[in-house]
Amino acid sequence: MTSLSNLVRSKGDPKIIRSGPSSLPASDRMARNLGWFSIALGVTELVAAASITRALGMPGREGLVRSFGLREIASGFLSLSVDKKAGLWSRVAGDLLDLAVLREGLRGFNPRRSTVSTAIIMVAGITVIDILTAKAAGAVHARSDLKPADYGRRTGFPSGVTAARGRAAESFTTPRDMRAELPR
């Protein structure tokens, strides 16, 4: 992508020779991957709900699967956004919902019990990944627990605030195009 963008630079513009390490921490990269996975899964649930319920031996739950698809897409966008922590925890909540619904597939006679069991193991695995990533992203982006610095001595005025008050007003006239006050 960057070598492609080098092509559109003008002659004297610097062009990338070698790339350095990214500002994106590993947890954010993982959040991105999970976000795209969420969107792909959500779209699949929307367009192939009937196939999914058939595979799980849970006919009649197509509406629920489609609503879960919408939820996955929303979580995906959130995980790709700057608010990735919220996106990742919403994925965890979604995983728990998935597990609760899948458990129903183990009750009573279901010829697809083994498929449901496999799905439960997969969702449980993804839940662990989601929790670990959400925790890691939370830690990377958290404000420190230490007391915030007190910048109470940084006045910016070498002679103090009192001396600075109105000091520029003596020697500055607001330009005509920026005046607001009417003559009194």
Partner: peptide, 24 residues
């Protein structure tokens, strides 16, 4: 030279790039 380069959302890198040249 080295420069901070935008590679995408939240992705800034300190890259090695060619030096700028006089164009005009």
């Amino acid at each position: 030279m080295r420069a901070l380069v935008w590679h995408g959302k939240e992705d800034i890198r300190c890259d090695t790039v060619s030096d700028p040249e006089i164009e005009d």
